[in-house]
């Protein structure tokens, strides 16, 4: 009872609870799992605060938690393109793959991220810089990720 434990919860169960909490107006803090948002968010190290959508929070560069169209898979990826009825997402750590989502399948957006214990808020200069630099590096993203992973492995 008095111990601090780490538990891994299945995605489906987690998403259901997150949806409920966000609908009630809560924000939810989660640790990032997976490498698809590297290097903006690092697997198991960084955490994000997911908040209910606001009218001004759906922009190119916003990271959203959403269910992929026609698939039962939830993603925490960045909006890269606006569509008629939704958005196209791409993980920062992905060079080629993109995903399509419908607006109604967005659970919430990343209001702030804690990267290596330092908080970065959505929309701030630091947030935009981190994103813009990475975005314009897209043509050489694969090379940069390869170098990055090489350095991480040698650490």
């Amino acid at each position: 009872m008095d111990s601090v434990r780490k538990e891994i919860v299945g995605n489906e169960l987690l998403m259901q609870s997150i949806k409920e909490l966000i609908k009630e107006g809560h924000t939810v803090t989660l640790t990032v799992k997976g490498v698809s948002m590297t290097p903006f968010l690092i697997n198991q190290r960084d955490s994000v605060v997911i908040a209910p959508l606001t009218t001004s929070s759906l922009n190119i560069g916003t990271i959203v938690l959403a269910k992929e169209k026609n698939r039962d898979r939830y993603l925490l990826h960045r909006i890269v393109k606006q569509r008629k009825d939704g958005y196209q997402l791409r993980g920062d750590g992905n060079c080629y793959g993109t995903e399509e989502i419908a607006t109604e399948d967005i659970v919430g957006y990343v209001k702030s991220a804690t990267r290596n214990k330092v908080r970065v808020d959505y929309g701030t200069l630091k947030w935009r810089l981190l994103w813009y630099i990475w975005r314009y590096m897209l043509p050489i993203r694969r090379l940069l990720l390869a170098i990055y992973n090489h350095i991480i492995k040698r650490k």
């Binding site: 169960l13 809560h26 939810v28 803090t29």
Partner: peptide, 24 residues
Amino acid sequence: VCNSNVVVAQGVENIDFNKIIKLN
């Protein structure tokens, strides 16, 4: 929350899944 008995603050407070208070 996720089929567990969890104590949370009501209202608009942040629920930190890294520091969730779970009761047996």
